[in-house]
Design a binder for these strands. Sequence first.
DNA 1: AAGGAAAACAACCGCACAAGA
DNA 2: GTCTTGTGCGGTTGTTTTCCT
Length: 298
Amino acid sequence: MGRPPCCDKFGVKKGPWTPEEDIILVSYIQEHGPGNWKAIPTNSGLSRCSKSCRLRWTNYLRPGIKRGSFTDQEENLIIHLQALLGNRWAAIASYLPERTDNDIKNYWNTHMKKKLRRMENEAVEEGTGFSNYQPIAKGQWERRLQTDINMAKQALQEALSMEKPRFLYESKPSCSSHSSSTPPSSTTYASSTENISRLLENWTRKTPKNSSKSTQHSVNNLVNVGTDSTTSSDGTITSVPNNNMVSPETGLFQVDSKPSLEERFPLSLIETWLFDENYGGANTVLDLSLDDASHELF
DNA sequence: AAGGAAAACAACCGCACAAGA
DNA sequence: GTCTTGTGCGGTTGTTTTCCT
């Protein structure tokens, strides 16, 4: 195709955005709404390319973005989602609506990689690789990753098997291949999680004003896709099949983020997996290959 | 206090893909 | 069917900030 870069034009400003530029962009978007990025530089008078405007908006100026350090819960979520989805930062970010994919990517590349490296070093130095802190020795990480993936698959299958949501089979024609005789690949699995993300997107789009609370909603909705949930008096979450997403208004998880999720609701398998660092982890390593797991589960 | 190193973060680049002409 | 355009995404780079000596 060979399309020239959009920022090659002479006079297009690069580099850090100034507060003045931010104000111009925000006020333009407030007036006209996001989208049609191509028109924004010319209509707003910004000397920026459309792409730069879009990035600035989505990564920095968009309302509902939470800045600052990541919580332990977010960190665990990212670790597990990364194990599950790989470096698909946009997909991971869809589970943390208050964080941008860029943020998560940066966090992973700085904090998490460093952490992993440190853990490996500690394990090598100690020789054993086991302590209360549980540094993960070389090789263990991979095995744990596999275990995590297996756990996730199992949990997702468990969640989905309660009621096979129609969207999984209707929204994407290609998903019908799930029932074919060919063994599903990892992309088959990923496509399921993408569907969850899509539902989450719909949900957040319906409730833009509540975006600041949406992280935990989305986490909980993650496992309640295609089901309605009710919390019984003993705190057990039960899922009732439906064809729609649980709306934030009618849903249970009007969480004000003070008590932890675990304190308020017993977690399902996948939730536990997503939040609990050691759930099914290094101490209970299952020696299953990735392929084996995917064959077993689908 | 100064300078260098490391870490953190913002922004850019290039590719891929979907939609429309 | 082909090309163009707009957008999304992941990887990478550049700049700023913080920490350490």
